[in-house]
Write a protein that binds this DNA or RNA. Structure first.
Lengths: 123, 123
DNA sequence: CCGGCAGTTCGACGATTGTTGAACTATGGA
DNA sequence: TCCATAGTTCAACAATCGTCGAACTGCCGG
């Protein structure tokens, strides 16, 4: 389902999220669901200047983490869940040397990586 | 298990990962498992200058994504899986307005968010 | 066609980031 | 004690980032 990321795309996505306003913005859209939110409402909720918001929205769009669509005079933004999932998977890829996994959470101490788990004395 | 993140800690973690060398470094450690790798071997594998590597290692340590321990003259670095998991959970928190979830992967089109899934016509 | 609202684009500024090489600290062996 | 190895710290530099205000574009109502 989600397209695999190469290193550069992953860096772009992470850089897009590595900023207070954009992280709050992205999470707002993740929580808003596929219906998304118009730019104006986002600006209001995050108390950000329109021009600044536009800048951040563009970064997230460029990173592929959100998408834009028009509804009358408003521009609606919504989270791109597949891109988010691809990023999560990329970060945890081959966790502890295992073969590919699809669900990213990884906890060696709890048996995520049987081969190496014994070497982690609950530290 | 994993400590919840506040916004600033999340931004720090994401910023730490939003750089080619550091992302490669982190993934290398994730794949290396809890045993970790000495700085020298990391430098060799990533073909990075020692002083530059030190800089990046420090950022990841500061972000809480990796930890350092000494073994003789070597400094061994290993991934902090709980921090990584906390970050993944933070990103997907309240996905589509749902209550907390523990496994981060989120796909509205596939029923992750029943209430809103119908509004996404396979677009 | 005109006014105005929703959002974006632009240029300029200060702040932060990543790199490099040289000097420094710490550990282990002889 | 002296030396070599493993890694870190420091200062300086170019490059990139985030913010601001002002000007701009696109869309709708009348």
């Amino acid at each position: 389902m989600e397209t695999d990321l190469d290193e550069k795309r992953a860096v772009t996505a992470l850089a897009a999220l590595a900023q207070e306003t954009r992280l709050a913005l992205f999470r707002l859209l993740v929580q808003a669901g596929p219906a998304g939110l118009p730019a104006g409402m986002i600006a209001e909720r995050l108390a950000v200047q329109p021009s600044s918001l536009s800048f951040h929205l563009a970064q997230l769009v460029h990173a592929g983490l959100i998408t834009q669509r028009r509804a009358g005079r408003q521009l609606i933004y919504s989270a791109e869940y597949s891109a988010m999932n691809a990023l999560l998977v990329y970060l945890t890829e081959n966790c502890c040397g295992r073969d590919a996994i699809s669900a990213p959470l990884c906890d060696p101490a709890a048996g995520c990586c049987p081969a190496t788990a014994a070497k982690t004395p609950a530290a």
